[in-house]
Design a protein around this nucleic acid. Structure first.
Lengths: 211, 211
DNA sequence: TATTGCATGTGACATTTGTCACATCTTAAT
DNA sequence: ATTAAGATGTGACAAATGTCACATGCAATA
């Protein structure tokens, strides 16, 4: 199996090469340090699998993958990363990446590589559990220094529906001033500046999935 | 790696055993023919990985998996199937199955097994493409009576990040007045009232997934 | 009873926001 | 060259928003 490794940290690249080449079947053709090099090295060597970091200077792994897959839709790209990021996962899936696993999982890398080589897609547990539609993730509100009452949550939802203070006050049979005070409290608790940031908070934490 | 195979068709079970045991590391502890046997054999042998068909008489692989995982949430179950079914895929994922691949992919089975054994999740291509149902929603922006320019989209994203007009103007090197005018246009085009509704629109239409 | 806490409300205030009419400048098309 | 279109900007304005200090009333409870 001929592979190319791309990682910001050269040490990681070298270590991976050593680990992987301990296996007879693996041949590391080249090591690069950023997305641009990823593109060039992929074109030059046409590896069976491209093992690539996501966060990199100059050009990210995501951007590089996009370009590579545009040219070769059968490219097999396995992302290696040190942390989790919902956005990246979704993007990676959309691009047609074949996998997404944590660098820390040393023992997993080789099997993952082989599975990808054989045509499968591989994802780590923690990653699968990030895909919002399937899994139940913790309500972010429970991890806060201050607790949010039921009434406050109700208010947050109405803001996240795009209602104005006046509309909310009518809906809840409270005065507009009261709504403002409530909201002001909520914003302080959550360390946000205005209702738009509150709505952003709501959706980015997938609170809409728990209605 | 100690495994148990469950398949409706005994021939498949035996063939798989033969194929897999060609590899030194694999030991097939038992072969069963339906979900009920799957449960019993899993409990008896506590295999590293359970390779199981989905469609089976008496009890399906899904039902069996549910019971097995209830008792042992770390159970590693790899589903083998001959056809694709969205419902099953979703269910399997919800249950916590570690993978889902096609029986036809002979060469894939062993690598997939090893990847699962090492803690990863494995899915075939056709299956991955079924998963992100919520990704398939076309960009809502393209279905509008008016088109949204690139610059406008950029602005929408900044609003959906919770920035104020002043912050946006600084980021884009434009005057605050210009930002307001832009925004005013966008709101009219999208038939929205204020920036909060714009952010709501953005997230409810999953525009954040397409950055 | 007295008190405390909580929910609700008011009024004032500065800021931000959205709208509008119109100006300026550049670029492209005729 | 003239015109048209688009991008950018300004100033004025009303409305909405967020903050704050402080009131009122009610219920629990020490």
């Amino acid at each position: 199996m001929r592979i190319v490794i791309i990682d910001d940290d050269n040490l990681v690249g070298i270590s991976l090469k050593t680990i992987l080449e301990a296996n007879q079947e693996v041949e590391v053709l080249a090591i690069g340090n950023n997305g641009k090099e990823g593109i060039l090295l992929y074109e030059k060597y046409q590896p069976d699998v491209l093992l690539m970091d996501i966060r990199m200077d100059i050009m990210t792994g995501i951007d590089a993958a996009k370009i590579i897959i545009e040219k070769d839709k059968n490219a097999k790209i396995l992302f290696l990363t040190t942390f989790l990021d919902d956005d990246y996962i979704i993007k990676a899936l959309q691009l047609g990446a074949k996998g997404y696993i944590l660098k820390q999982d040393f023992e997993s890398i080789l099997p993952a590589l082989k599975a990808v080589y054989s045509g499968q897609n591989v994802f780590g547990d923690k990653i699968i559990s990030k895909i919002p539609s399937f899994l139940d993730q913790k309500k972010a509100l429970e991890d806060l220094p201050f607790s949010i009452s039921q009434k406050e949550l109700e208010l947050i939802r109405l803001v996240a529906d795009g209602l104005s203070n006046k509309e909310i006050s009518q809906k809840l049979y409270l005065s507009e001033g009261t709504i403002r005070n409530y909201l002001s409290n909520i914003l302080e608790k959550l360390d946000l500046r205005d209702r738009t940031q509150l709505a952003v908070f709501y959706y980015q934490n997938h609170l809409d999935l728990y209605r």
